[in-house]
Design a protein around this nucleic acid. Structure first.
Lengths: 120, 120
DNA sequence: CGTCTATCTTGACATCTGTCGATCCATGCG
DNA sequence: CGCATGGATCGACAGATGTCAAGATAGACG
């Protein structure tokens, strides 16, 4: 996995256009359920959710690992979780010099929000 | 698209309504992360997500187990997943005579959607 | 080149999770 | 009461997951 550039990832293709209609309006197909469940799973760990929120709320839209890695677990564990978020298509990473920067993959949040929208 | 729920206030507040600001505007506290991660985790399994969507999209707002249990796994497994969704506060169940009906716990979907809102 | 720092990868381990068969409980019916 | 049916619980088991220590890689800098 000598992946030349950390920024090219499409393990999961963010065909994250409108994936599916809201949960309240139609039941999911098995295929869509697998796709969306993978995204929810990426956010289903407190450490991962915090890492993601730190990236998402960072002023410049991107955050260096060094800025967000203080979440109470070891550095390898942080790296492991960031990798999971990358593989799920939620984050993209790019190395610039000494540091690696993460940013939220556009569209994914919108797809998830759309699925949950329409709550009464 | 549903107009903002400003005019419709959930009567029953399961304690999850105004959990946290959107992920894009502030980073989560550890406490909030644990709470929200538990909800995402409940939806992080394809079978569970399908069961949930079947309940959420059911005409009357509730569904009998007998109506939704055809998702490709055994009956005990369905029951197991419904229990998880109950424990996560996403579904409520009620027995009426022979059958047990599940409905979406109000407010929870809105809380999750709010967390993901603001995506660009 | 050597070394320092930032980050990722590997390997190991305990725990959690999804699944099923078997069994149990509750309700309705004859 | 006895039995059938919808649904929950129990026990077991393979596989996934979160975690860390240790080692590997990549760039910066002298």
């Amino acid at each position: 996995m000598s992946n030349s550039s950390l920024s090219e990832l499409p393990v999961i293709d963010p065909g994250v256009a409108p994936c599916c209609p809201p949960l309240t309006s139609a039941s999911l197909s098995e295929e869509d359920a697998v796709k969306m469940a993978a995204m929810f799973k990426a956010l289903s760990d407190p450490v991962r959710l915090r890492l993601f929120s730190r990236v998402a709320s960072h002023p410049d839209g991107e955050a260096c690992v060094c800025d967000i890695q203080d979440v109470g677990v070891s550095q390898p564990t942080v790296s492991h979780h960031l990798k999971k978020l990358r593989e799920a298509g939620l984050l993209a990473s790019e190395r610039r010099g000494t540091w690696v920067y993460y940013r939220v993959e556009p569209g994914v949040l919108a797809a998830m929000a759309a699925l949950l929208a329409g709550a009464r």
